[in-house]
Design a protein around this nucleic acid. Sequence first.
DNA 1: TCAAAAGTGTTCACTTTACACCCATGT
DNA 2: ACATGGGTGTAAAGTGAACACTTTTGA
Lengths: 249, 249
Amino acid sequence: MDPQQQFLKKSEEAKDLFIPHLSTDPVVFGFDQSELKVLLLQMTYRKQWLLPGGYVKKDEDLDAAAERVLRERAGISDVYLEEFAVFGKKNRSEFYFEDFDESLWHKQRFISIGYYALYNPDNANLIIDEFSEKCEWIYLSQLSEIELAMDHREIIEKALLTLRERISYKPIGYNLLPEKFTLSELQKLYETILGKELNRGNFYRKIKNLGILRKLDEQRRGGAHKSPDLYSFDEENYKKALENGLNNW
Amino acid sequence: MDPQQQFLKKSEEAKDLFIPHLSTDPVVFGFDQSELKVLLLQMTYRKQWLLPGGYVKKDEDLDAAAERVLRERAGISDVYLEEFAVFGKKNRSEFYFEDFDESLWHKQRFISIGYYALYNPDNANLIIDEFSEKCEWIYLSQLSEIELAMDHREIIEKALLTLRERISYKPIGYNLLPEKFTLSELQKLYETILGKELNRGNFYRKIKNLGILRKLDEQRRGGAHKSPDLYSFDEENYKKALENGLNNW
DNA sequence: TCAAAAGTGTTCACTTTACACCCATGT
DNA sequence: ACATGGGTGTAAAGTGAACACTTTTGA
């Protein structure tokens, strides 16, 4: 059975299970090599890249749907997920399934709930689902070079802007960094999300004064220079600090 | 025909026109007598109050749906509307139509897109639609005394929090106040949204320095005291100032 | 020995906060 | 007379940005 036929068969089965006209599109961010990247899929019959989105079951919390979709389509679980915007223009998806017959229910107009997810890519054991050919992390800096389906580029950009707005109020660092990290990794993360450079000395003092870090008795080995100290978050203080906002970055 | 039967008839007609499982719930804020109020409806067969929500047509932008619903259900148009959150718990509406037969499509599970709207109540010529008995402004301070349907209390609270977050970046004052207003009315509005008192002198200077106000040659008459000066917004400067954020209130 | 990392000090400019005091004016 | 509004002064405290210097240490 060729991919397109297989897709059609699956499509029929799904029709009654899901809420029509509604999907959820999670933008999964990962931080790595001091750069942000996003998880994207490529379908078997199309060269455009897609967010790992999916439909919501008729009897399923919306948040649960976003979680499930990520698990099924990318093999990712235990992820920090938050809704950030709705994409509801009536013609937003009309060209994506243009090769198919009008009767295909996917051709219906869809409203999409945008979620952003924060994930430490070290933990990822990516899978490729039955509709996809690839499931890969794409660096933000490379996004301009690839083709994205529908309004998915807009969704990613809006997710990034939301991240920037919420950096002082949501556990963004906590969810993107590994358990143990160095101060310059943390600083780099802030710099990427905010899109500007920060002064090292001032950053050091600010973070220190917030009291949200615990310095560990270990160093990261490897470079031709002094081994940087490793830190982890002090979860309790971190949560408390977030309530009032970490800072005015 | 009794109200309930009438409702059922309308319901049947609507079934094919709208996207199932999806609704939009606008929280319309008005400012008046130095207090915030919210527009609510009461249905004919229920004592609980409701947001003036409605369904989205199959071929209609989401934003347009919110606008239309407000027009149809409350007679309000030309309103500043913005999406702020999604309410998607699977059981959020399950008790509202409990008196009806299982076959009623409204009993289906609904996901609701929350919009907030800002409106100067002076302009309002409220109407009452065919499903409602009342359409009224309710002061926030009185909300605790009335019964609200489903999760609509939660939606209102979340809308208010969003307003607070966005007060420096969105034209909130502009849309809530009448054309001409006094400085203390403006200050009172800020105080209500922020939920805290502000120092008059400092407020005066801050607002003045932003250059977003135009002082008019008129005063508001009436009190047993000096007549306060009237102001209006300088639209151009206001917009410019919003881009960088008005302030850190 | 060199490069990156850790840690600290200091200065300047600016903002925020809190309070206080003045005068104006409509009823 | 008096309550409210308009307008300004000011001192204390805090914040942010910039920069520079020191010490540490792994390869």
